[in-house]
Design a protein around this nucleic acid. Structure first.
Length: 482
RNA sequence: GCUCCGGUAGUGUAGUCCGGCCAAUCAUUUCGGCCUUUCGAGCCGAAGACUCGGGUUCAAAUCCCGGCCGGAGCACCA
């Protein structure tokens, strides 16, 4: 008898076709800034597939535009740093700008096989040809002529803007995006990494296609904005007799809390001083997340759960925060931080030391906070109090409110009462703390023990999780989430 | 204008290829209760979705056609 089998919900990433023998996958950023959350998705999902099937994970810097998307020399290292932090160390790192002379022999081969030609049409003229679907005069040049012109591109006889190398596809192709696409152009601006070593630079479609072949890439994950690239590149693969990798496209990712962002826009805003830097808590970079105490595992889990759908998605940081909270809640020590502090005078026999657990559920010992007849409480807490009300100062004592302005209270015993309103406080001798949040800055005073938590994630009770980033006066913490 | 790709709860996501086990998964979110010397933590419970219209079929989230909505490409950008 056959048992009916309940369909199991798929966990993790969908299977890749033809991946059983291992995969070679790459993430190919242009290093014109540090990785953003969008890059993190590419880094994480590619590396996760390599972990799943075995093989090689490659970081390839597609830095072939010295002008419009000019690379930042520092950014190459930033990518590697963030990859390591994301537990996605590449097996191989290559940089396209250092490999341009690998591409030139391929061009000659292509020209000889009639797959490419040097086109001298001004951009606007060629666009007309493309729109009408008719070849331009250069398309039928002989291979010899093309080789000669290619040589002139390389040796400087032809100036920037005078010629491009095109891949021959089909000028009558029903999709205008596919018609004879440009593969190389002349750029006289020096490249930030290799200077003026090359003057003829490949465009993305060519560089990426050739590198994917050279590196033995088996599977490509790319944004669906590049969906037409495959159709273009297949012509090149056919001329050369290469086998095209499997391709998966995914949609654009937007984040509610950050709106739409691009590396170049961020760069401008930072240069203009709108943000303090690439790790400003208001910015959606991987390093900003790190400084806020977001754990790499949280990012990994989140990105893997997103999967590889082609739909454009608008996600909320809430899900990342929820993942992160599960990870850091058991790890983070608790401290008191009072924002918008106001003084509370307390009459009577207030204990001179409060003994409070570093964690409510896990035994990690205690912190000792000096108290006295004066403490700080939050202005917002004071506003909610009434004269005569009895409340508890957490881990210290109970008090009865005598007056609100100025704030005064009377010691009313140390035993924890049932159903009593509990607020937190900070010692009069506390340290200044400044919390940088995505939506503003909170300043206040915290207990001195915070200074022992440099580079750690802690929870400020009744406030949220923060990462302590700099000691000093004040101590600087970046806000993670509630 | 030409071309391509999508559309499952507020947000994501599984299921769609190979129709029935889907009165649709999981997470997040929101709300309620319990617990708690912080909390948006924990425990328990609830809310909430197949873009629309036709067709095929005993049976459609799943296949076909059309509409609507959304995204992308048509750069000497990546």
């Amino acid at each position: 008898m056959e048992l009916s089998v309940k369909k199991e919900p798929d966990k993790g990433l969908p299977d890749l076709q033809g991946a059983s023998g291992g995969v070679v996958m790459r993430f190919a950023p242009n290093p014109n800034g540090p990785p953003t959350l969008g890059s993190a998705r590419g880094i994480i999902v590619n590396s996760e597939y390599v972990k799943k099937y075995g093989g090689k994970f490659i970081i390839r810097f597609d830095d072939t535009d010295p002008v419009k998307k000019r690379p930042m020399p520092e950014a190459y290292g930033w990518y590697l740093e963030d990859c390591a932090w994301l537990d996605a160390k590449p097996d191989l790192v290559i940089t396209a700008s250092e490999r341009i002379d690998l591409y030139y022999p391929i061009v000659e081969e292509l020209i000889s096989r009639g797959g490419a030609y040097v086109c001298g049409c001004p951009q606007s003229v060629f666009k007309e040809h493309k729109d009408r679907g008719v070849p331009c005069e250069h398309r039928d040049q002989t291979a010899e002529k093309n080789l000669e012109l290619w040589g002139q591109m390389l040796d400087g006889t032809l100036a920037e803007g005078q010629a491009v190398l095109r891949i021959k596809t089909d000028m009558g192709h029903k999709d205008p995006a596919i018609r004879d696409w440009p593969a190389f152009r002349i750029v006289s601006t020096p490249h930030p990494l290799v200077g003026s070593k090359f003057r003829v630079w490949p465009l993305l479609d060519f560089e990426s296609a050739v590198e994917d072949h050279l590196l033995g890439t088996t599977h490509i994950l790319r944004g669906k904005d590049l969906a037409d690239s495959g159709s273009r590149q297949k012509y090149l693969y056919d001329y050369l007799g290469w086998k095209y990798p499997q391709v998966i496209h995914w949609g654009r990712i937007r984040i509610h809390q950050f709106g739409s962002f691009s590396t170049s826009k961020l760069r401008k805003a930072i240069e203009a001083g709108e943000y303090t830097g690439w790790d400003d808590p208001r910015v959606p970079t991987v390093r900003a997340m790190r400084c806020r105490g977001i754990q790499p595992e949280a990012l990994r889990k989140f990105m893997i759960d997103l999967g590889v759908g082609e739909t454009d998605i608008a996600i909320s940081m809430d899900s990342i925060y929820a993942e992160n909270r599960k990870l850091i809640d058991p790890k983070a020590n608790r401290y008191f931080f009072v924002w918008n502090p106001v003084e509370l005078q307390i009459e009577g026999d207030v204990p001179s030391i409060a003994k409070a657990p570093l964690h409510p559920a896990i035994d990690r010992g205690y912190r000792e906070i000096p108290a006295k007849n004066k403490v700080f409480i939050c202005h917002s807490d004071l506003e909610g109090l009434k004269i005569g009300e009895r409340i508890r100062l957490k881990d210290l004592c109970n008090v009865e409110i005598l007056s609100l302005e100025p704030a005064r209270a009377r010691f009313e015993g140390r035993d924890v009462g049932k159903r009593m309103k509990i607020i937190h406080w900070a010692p009069a001798s506390g340290v200044a703390v400044k919390v940088l949040k995505p939506d503003g800055i909170d300043e206040g005073v915290g207990e001195a023990g915070i200074a022992k938590e440099l580079n750690q994630v802690v929870q400020f009770e009744r406030y949220g999780f923060v990462r302590i980033n700099r000691l000093g006066e004040p101590i600087i913490a970046n806000f993670a989430h509630r």
